[in-house]
């Protein structure tokens, strides 16, 4: 798998603008505004990078060429998830450093860890949805599938708004009502992200093993 990871690394180096510009932009914006929401874009962006690079692989026919190299289908799939994980950890660390040293508005360690967990969850969620689709159907069809998923969520979100413009479900209020500690929420967030990623990896393996080239 080392050769495949090295290929990803070189692919990132080929496009330093797509790598460094968003990093610099989000860092500056997050520090200036001290907005934790803006900070969450950073892991979101880095998590999806390996998925976007797959489009370039398709154009160059790398995927087909790779089948002449000594890698199993499992290794090919797993490499994508390892790349996502590496970038997630990287963006989580950057977010942590920014939060702790530049955006610390006086929050305690548990709140800090909760935000880090949120950063991790944000970075793995989208690739966990996209990777199985991309690996099985290719980047173009996967984008269509993602559009459909977003449309379904959009419809559900619209249905959740009541007549006065409020939410029917009041998720945050319900969560607050459960009286769960922030430490437990952090753990749940990390565990949920890990479970989603593991489930996605299993589905991707299953789909990719059946793929015909």
């Amino acid at each position: 798998m080392k050769g495949l990871l090295k290929k990803e690394w070189y692919a990132f180096l080929q496009k330093p603008v797509t790598f460094l510009f968003p990093l610099a932009l989000f860092v500056v914006l997050a520090i200036q505004t001290k907005s934790q929401v803006i900070l969450m874009y950073l892991p979101l962006y880095f998590g999806i990078l390996p998925v976007t690079l797959m489009s370039a692989d398709e154009v160059s026919h790398w995927e087909r060429y790779m089948h002449g190299l000594p890698y199993s289908r499992s290794a090919i799939v797993s490499e994508k998830y390892v790349t996502v994980l590496i970038l997630s950890v990287f963006s989580m660390l950057v977010s942590g450093v920014l939060l702790f040293f530049f955006m610390n508005t006086g929050f305690a360690v548990p709140q800090f860890l909760f935000l880090i967990a949120a950063a991790f969850a944000a970075s793995v969620l989208l690739p966990s949805v996209m990777l199985p689709l991309n690996l099985r159907f290719g980047a173009a069809k996967a984008r269509i599938a993602l559009g459909v998923i977003f449309a379904i969520f959009g419809c559900l979100a619209a249905l959740s708004v009541d007549d006065e413009g409020g939410s029917r479900f009041q998720l945050l209020e319900k969560l607050a009502g459960l009286n769960i500690s922030i430490g437990a929420l952090t753990g749940i967030l990390f565990a949920a992200a890990a479970v989603i990623m593991a489930a996605s990896w299993c589905i991707a393996l299953m789909l990719y093993r059946k793929k015909q080239f």
Partner: peptide, 27 residues
């Protein structure tokens, strides 16, 4: 096996030195 497909699908931006390093880590 030495496989040579009809289209050599290496990533377009890579140079020979980078390709060599990838292959060295693969074979």
């Amino acid at each position: 096996l030495g496989i040579v497909p009809d289209e050599i699908g290496l990533p377009e931006g890579l140079n020979i030195r980078q390709v060599e390093k990838i292959m060295a880590d693969s074979f």
